[in-house]
Each structure stands twice: as C-alpha cells, then as structure tokens.
C-alpha cells in the first residue's frame, strides 16, 4: 500500500475539497484496488500560492490551486479566463482540458509535475450594492473588488475603479462600503456570505471573466508507482476529473443563484450593454491571446479549438 499526501489550504467543508478532492482520492483508491491511499493534511502547509511548488518539490504528493496565484508563471491559462467563453463550468472545463492536452501543455509550464486536471469555475458575473441594472454605463466609476490578473483589467477597461484585495477580504470591503460591488461567480457570492450586502446582479452571457484551477501530482511520486497503478490513476483523472470539478462548480453556482432568490435581483445584461462591453474588451482579449502565443503555442488556434470544443459539447456531442 502506498500513501500519497494531499496538501489542502481550504476549509474541509469547501466543495472543492469535499466534492472534488475527497472523491478523487476515493476513486484513486478504488481504481488501484486499495493499493494507493491518500492522506489529506489537516492544516495548510503554506499560503495558497506556494502549493504548485509544493508538488514540484515533493513537499506534498498532490496539490491543487489557482494558476493566477503565481502571477507571471502561467500564460496559457489566459485561454480559459478571458471574457465570454462559456456559461457552464462543466463544458468549459472539459473543453479546456482537451485544449490543454492537445496544445497548451507544449508550452512547458507544467513540466515539473504530473497534471491530473485543469478546469474553470462558473462564469464571473456582476454584483452591485445598488444601481440600474440596465444602464449602459453600469460600471462607470463603481468601486469593484477584484483579485489579480484578467479581472483587474476587465474592471478597469469597463470604467470601474478596481479595489484590490484577496477574496477573503471581500466581505470586509463590501460591508464597510469600501467597495460598491464585486465581480464573482454565483457560488463565491454565496460562499463568502455577500448576499445581504448586494442588491443588483447582472448575468453576462459567457461570463465576464473566469478562473483557471489545477490539480497536480509530484512527478517522482507518480513515476515510483507501478504501470498498472499509473494507468488506474490516469483512468480517473484527466478529462474525467476536470469534468467532475466543472460539475461541482455548476452545482454550487446553481445553489448560489437559488440562495439569491428575493435578496438579489439577477437580470441578464442588455444587448446594448453586451455590444459595448464586447467591443471595449476585444483589445484585452486579443492581448491575452497574444500572451499565449509568446509561449510558443499558437494562441489564436488554441482559442479557436476551445470555442469549437465548447460548441461541440453544448450541442450534445
């Protein structure tokens, strides 16, 4: 019997842990006939951003996290994070995995690890304390809490004032009125208990932004397993694990949206809003895809493949 340690920086009750990581370890155990078991550590080994290197360096055997926590490191994640790519995390995640597997991994960003999954959460929407949801200049001058990376640029491009801060500080920023609103998926608004702070929600077809996640394994640990064990792990990870993670985000997004019933009025963005945002954001999208090309991968082709895969999956193929 081989034990693999799993580093966790989230509370055990977080759905990413309880509905993805824990089931993943169970599936690995089952697929290997009980030969490979996991030990999920009770407390974090370090800040979330340190977790990719924990897997590279063998501090833990399996780690998960957000690529964006290591700014500058992953440029191919842009493909999955730019605006308007998809409404379902499951569809986006599966498509993202396929693109990663056939094109993006050649960029070499993940060469230090064995990748078990790459996936995205649900689409990022707009939430405000107040305001006219249909106003064409909805975001103009609004102070929006944002994390780093793409969402910062999206917010400032649309005329908002980005207020920086980690997601754990979102409540503090909103409840004290430092921020007027936030760009978040439904799930996060609910998870960080922001619903009482917000009144207006605007859902953006395809999402205003997205966030890319990874689950990776230490290479040496994977190589130390028997070929049968490796094949067993491959059979329950990759596209299957990415799909499971995407499904989880869809489920909790649905719960988040349901929890907003009667507290936040969520309406879709108007056609005029979409037209103006799409044209305003096109230069941002182009620049992000150009960054992907810097890694040696054909950025526009990868982007096209992602769109094609998403279209295929949405039409039920």
């Amino acid at each position: 019997e081989t034990t693999i340690t799993v580093a966790n920086w989230l509370p055990p009750s977080h759905p990413l842990v309880s509905d993805v990581i824990v089931p993943m370890t169970e599936q690995i155990k089952e697929a290997t006939g009980g030969e490979v078991v996991a030990n999920i550590l009770p407390a974090p080994l370090g800040p979330p951003g340190a977790h990719f290197d924990f897997a590279v360096n063998g501090v833990a055997d399996i780690t998960f996290g957000v690529q964006g926590y290591n700014p500058g490191r992953f440029k191919t994640t842009n493909i999955a994070e730019i605006p308007f790519i998809g409404d379902s995390a499951e569809v986006t995640s599966v498509a993202y995995w396929r693109v990663w597997d056939s094109m993006l991994k050649q960029a070499g960003e993940y060469d230090g690890v064995k990748v078990l999954a790459v996936f995205t959460h649900g689409p990022g929407e707009i939430f405000l304390k107040d305001g006219d949801a249909t106003a064409p200049d909805l975001l103009d001058g609004k102070k929006l809490r944002v994390g780093g990376g793409i969402v910062h640029e999206v917010a400032s491009t649309l005329g908002a004032v980005p207020v920086e801060g980690p997601s754990s500080k979102a409540y503090e920023l909103l409840s004290q009125g430092v921020a007027d609103g936030i760009l978040f998926p439904y799930e996060s608004v609910n998870f960080f208990k922001l619903i009482p702070q917000l009144d207006v929600g605007v859902s953006v077809p395809g999402g205003l932004y997205n966030t890319s996640f990874y689950i990776v394994m230490n290479k040496a640990k994977f190589d130390s397993l028997t070929p049968e064990q490796q094949a067993a792990i491959d059979s329950v990870t990759g596209e299957a694990l990415s799909r499971m993670a995407g499904q989880m985000w869809d489920d909790v997004d649905a719960k988040g949206l349901a929890a907003m019933e009667g507290e936040i009025t969520v309406t879709p963005a108007t056609e005029a809003q979409m037209a103006s945002w799409q044209s305003a954001l096109q230069p941002v999208i182009d620049a992000k895809i150009a960054q992907v090309s810097e890694t040696g991968v054909d950025g526009p082709a990868a982007y096209q493949m992602l769109r094609d895969e998403i279209a295929k999956l949405e039409s039920g193929e």
Partner: peptide, 23 residues
Amino acid sequence: IIGWTPALSLLGSAFFDNGRDYS
C-alpha cells in the same frame, strides 16, 4: 517525515512566502 529535499524547500517557502502577506 517527508525527506530532506522537500523539507528544505518547504523551509524556503515558509521564510519567503509568509513575509509577502498583505494582511
């Protein structure tokens, strides 16, 4: 518990990553 190489890299992370925490 986990061997010297990973333990040493964890030490580097503990002394560097936690000093760059905005809070």
